[in-house]
Amino acid sequence: MEKIPVGVLGATGMVGQQYIALLADHPWFEVTYVAASPRSAGKPYADAVAGRWQLAKPYSPAVGPLIVEDANDISRAAAAAGQGKCAFVFSALEMGKDEIKALEEAYAAAGIPVVSNASAHRWTRDVPMLIAEVNPSHTDIIPIQQTSRGWDKGFIAVKPNCSIQSYMTPLWALIQAGYEVKRMFVSTMQAVSGAGFPGVPSLSIIENVVPYIGGEEEKSEQEPLKILGSVTEGAIVSAEGPLITAHCNRVPVVDGHTACVSLEFGSKKPSIEEVKKIWSEFTALPQELKLPMAPERPIIVREEADRPQPRKDRDLDKAMAVCVGRIRPCNLFDLRFVGLSHNTVRGAAGGGILNAELLKSKGYL
């Protein structure tokens, strides 16, 4: 199979580097175009990330010589697309939200699909916010998005906030099994890599917990409702529930977002054993799709009293699985558990790549 040439916007940043690393051996996609800020533009990628490469896994030798383009210059990407060197782009842009929003729209208007990690378009009503195992049907909005905006080949699809992916798939599995979730209490303990690089100052996080991450609680309370919503009359309409309240904390962990979750069900309540069975057997994506980044087991249940733990469980199944444990009755609601996911893989670049694989399987790429 001939690989699809792809670009990475924000390629020198923390998430951009993760895209570059994860795509190094991808069977479907090949990085042929990289773009970043003007200060990196004009340099070979190897020079642009010299002394700044943050990952244990190196980038592909084929990427090192690629000249970094200015991400603000859409004409360069359009020219590459015209030459068959950039079929679509992954967006890991790091700039103001309004700037990202305008820039991603400009790429789409130029006929270049955008699979975004950024938050700028998460609340745009005709842009799908995808977790592949949860709401793949939201891709149905893409033709509507293209028609209403006059975009021929371009479109925008985004992934949600990294922290909610530590519990959204378990939540969806229970809803899909027929259990109404009325209320949800979640407290997250989020890794420092979620703040990008250089991220949180060391004197602020070592031996400390920071009980505030700007905008994070609002995202945690609202984004799940769009994901659980439906495509209605040309827009994605958010679900009315569950009612969610969130506490979000930054903790001295490098990678891996942990969430302590309590759920209140409607009149029909699952037993603990039924919950474990639902999660252990959850598959969601049709196996015949064979999406390369999809985990074989989207939800991994641990029985140990002290798991999941970021250092021990964040890398399970290509770092794309959600690991759950401490599943037990809740004195306030009905059920409580701990969820864990790798924030820069499942919650960022890996999730974006899986979304692109889903879009390709549906014929959009």
Rank of each mutant, 00 (worst) to 15 (best):
T258N: 02
T139A: 13
T245P: 03
N135P: 05
E288Y: 13
R302I: 15
P160S: 09
E264P: 04
E99K: 06
Q190I: 15
R328I: 04
I272Q: 14
G7T: 10
R307V: 03
Q146F: 01
Q83C: 09
I112G: 03
Y107N: 08
G194A: 09
A106W: 08
A321E: 10
H257M: 12
G241E: 07
E2R: 11
K268G: 03
V134Q: 00
D152W: 00
P44Y: 01
L130G: 11
P242I: 14
E217G: 00
E274A: 14
L228A: 07
T188N: 09
K290A: 10
E207W: 10
A132M: 06
M184T: 06
M184G: 05
Q146H: 00
S230H: 12
P308H: 01
E221K: 05
A87Q: 11
I244F: 10
E217N: 01
P5A: 10
A50N: 04
E105L: 11
G111M: 03
A319Y: 05
R122P: 03
A305Q: 14
S230E: 12
F337K: 00
A79M: 07
V89A: 11
E273K: 13
A106D: 15
G7M: 10
R122F: 00
G352F: 09
E207C: 13
M14R: 14
A157I: 10
D70R: 01
R149I: 03
A284N: 01
I131S: 02
A321Q: 08
K318G: 11
S361E: 12
F333H: 14
V275K: 00
L22H: 04
E104N: 11
G196Y: 06
W123T: 15
S166K: 08
K153V: 02
R250G: 14
E216G: 06
G111E: 04
Q145T: 00
A246L: 00
P65I: 05
A21M: 03
N208G: 09
A348F: 02
L316P: 01
V114M: 01
G10W: 02
T12H: 08
S163Q: 05
A106H: 14
A36C: 07
S163E: 11
K268E: 11
A102K: 14
